[in-house]
Amino acid sequence: MAIRIQRVPSESLAGGVAARLVAIVLALVVAAIVFAFTGADLGKLGSHVLKSTFGSRFGLMDLGLIMTPLTLTGLAVMIALKVGAWNIGAEGQFCAGAFAATAVALFVPGPNVVVLPLMFVAGALGGMIWILIPTLARAYADVSELITTLLLNFVGVLLIYYVATGPWLDPSGVSFASTARLPHDVPSFWGDVHWGLPLAILLTIAVAAVLNFTRWGYEVRIAGSNPNAARYAAIPFRRHLIVVMLMSGAIAGLAGMLEAAGTAHRLQGGISNNFGYIGIMVAVLARGSAIGVIAGAALMAIILKSGISLQTQGVNISTVLAITGLILFFTALADELSHYRIVRTKEA
């Protein structure tokens, strides 16, 4: 008997899950070893993190609140990848969505039932407008969307800082760096956790269904995988590229709207909180699967939340980032390794 390692073209579901779990445990072990060297009290740190993340109502609520935008930004990046585009700009589209929704909330008078839906529309449109130019540049001039979407992130983030500290600054003087509290909220269903979370999850499942069970989804898959084959099969590559990229922007914009109107209740500088960039990681971890986006967003939410509670214990931010990086590194590794399996062969 000999033992060999063999690469398999597609991983099994169980294998994939197991590999990722092992990866997380490994990353934590490595992190623990590093902590042990710095002389920290591992048991205390660990139990604190667990308690503050899973062991308390507030911890779980925070997880839900963090997971909401990550699910949407992850979905935004993932869907763009389906058509072969790298939307690095979810951060900027997030800001644009938050900006547009805030504008409606602050300046459109009216009852909740009218203004809140308008805010949803504005959020999605904001994100869409933010990705419009990169989309057209890619579709008609073949300009890489990688760079254009990225550059607009800086513009988006700065725009929020500007309006939140300038023209839209809270007139009541309560806050120095944000708008007034928005008059309309996304309603909550459990403590602070608002309906944005179930909405994000449902939207993700809906997108998965559309991609797998509609003609349009099939066409997008072909177009994204090989534009030449699409041309050959009379699938309108450019149209799909434009539509999907705009959808991607709209989803990221929606994430921004929910963050502003559901979680922060104000527009403030730094509201995007790198959610757009972390969405890229979520999408990469998800490997093109929508269910994977939900799982990836949950994982990243746990990592971020644990990081926050470590910081409250005096662990500095670079250490937290290093652990985040480790977990991602190991998960990516596991992802690759789960494509291998060990086989026993009889030696001839």
């Binding site: 003609r215 066409e219 072909i222 995988s225 090989n226 030449n228 041309r231 099969a233």
Partner: peptide
């Protein structure tokens, strides 16, 4: 490989490219 197929997609996706609609 360049125009008749999408090499990274599944056999099924590729074989039905003319009749998926």
């Amino acid at each position: 490989l360049q125009s008749g197929l999408a090499p990274a997609l599944s056999v099924t996706d590729n074989v039905v490219i003319r009749e998926y609609g």
